[in-house]
């Protein structure tokens, strides 16, 4: 049974994508994608490297204009207003040349006044309570990504998108990031999580979208997907065979 949004907050769902294509030098990186994401569940987009997952995420968030096709959030085309209700965590965290608290304040100030209590609670939550005044770019990789996540959550997004946020991170940071993502989900945020890590997809994927070579091959419930994948590429991927 799929969860539905009950708090009336996420008017951005469903996400409807139709005929989405993106070419680079005539090479199709995304090939006429049609997809509808309508549940409040955690959606995991997975697939091998080069499948087009990150590109897809960037296009639906409006960071890149598609070559063709249409993206609608709750029936609306992408606009600044729609984008302000979303937040994105990048694979390589983009941290400002400021302190940990300064990075948080920057995000908070864009959405109104700086609430120091809320800021400090978020910093504490991601385990950076002792590093509040430390220059953000001197943090370790895992700490940087946790700060990026806290900063994204400070925006109180209705849709939280994460682009392979835990690739190359230490296990403790991976665990903490997954926990916080789950908390955000319970608080009512729609999660769209891109990963090529199979076990992570099992842990987080209420719904799985499996991509391969710029196409969406499957979109099913997570338990269904891992038990009975429909496509050969997905079967190979799950069984750990190299998918090219």
């Amino acid at each position: 049974m799929q969860k539905r949004f009950t708090n009336g907050k996420t008017g951005l769902i469903p996400l409807e994508v139709s005929g989405l294509s993106y070419h680079a030098d005539d090479r199709p990186l995304l090939d006429a994608l049609d997809v509808r994401i309508s549940s409040a569940d955690r959606t995991v987009i997975m697939g091998p490297n080069g499948a087009g997952k990150s590109l897809f995420l960037r296009i639906i968030h409006g960071l890149i204009a598609p070559g063709a096709g249409d993206v609608r959030w709750g029936g609306r085309a992408m606009s600044d207003d729609v984008r302000r209700r979303q937040a994105m965590v990048f694979q390589r965290p983009v941290l400002l040349r400021r302190s940990v608290a300064g990075n948080m304040d920057f995000a908070l100030s864009l959405r109104g006044a700086i609430d120091e209590e809320k800021r400090d609670a978020l910093i504490e939550r991601v385990g950076l309570g002792n590093a509040r005044d430390q220059p953000a770019r001197t943090l370790s990789g895992g700490e940087q990504q946790r700060l990026a996540l806290a900063r994204a959550l400070a925006l109180e997004p209705e849709v939280l998108m994460l682009d392979e946020p835990t690739a190359n991170l230490d296990p403790a940071s991976v665990l903490m990031i997954e926990e916080i993502v789950n908390e955000a989900h319970h608080a009512g945020a729609k999660i769209i999580f891109v990963t090529h890590d199979l076990s992570q997809a099992r842990r987080l994927g209420d719904e799985i979208i499996f991509m391969h070579r710029g196409k969406i091959l499957e979109q099913t419930q997570g338990d269904v997907f891992f038990k009975a994948p429909q496509s050969q590429a997905a079967r190979d991927f799950i069984e750990g065979r190299i998918v090219t």
């Binding site: 960071l63 984008r83 302000r84 979303q86 937040a87 994105m88 400002l96 864009l110």
Partner: peptide, 15 residues
């Protein structure tokens, strides 16, 4: 140089 690094993040924030 800085903008190149921050661009996606700033676009995401709709600044």
């Amino acid at each position: 140089d800085i903008y190149l690094e921050y661009k996606d993040f700033f676009t995401s924030l709709a600044m």
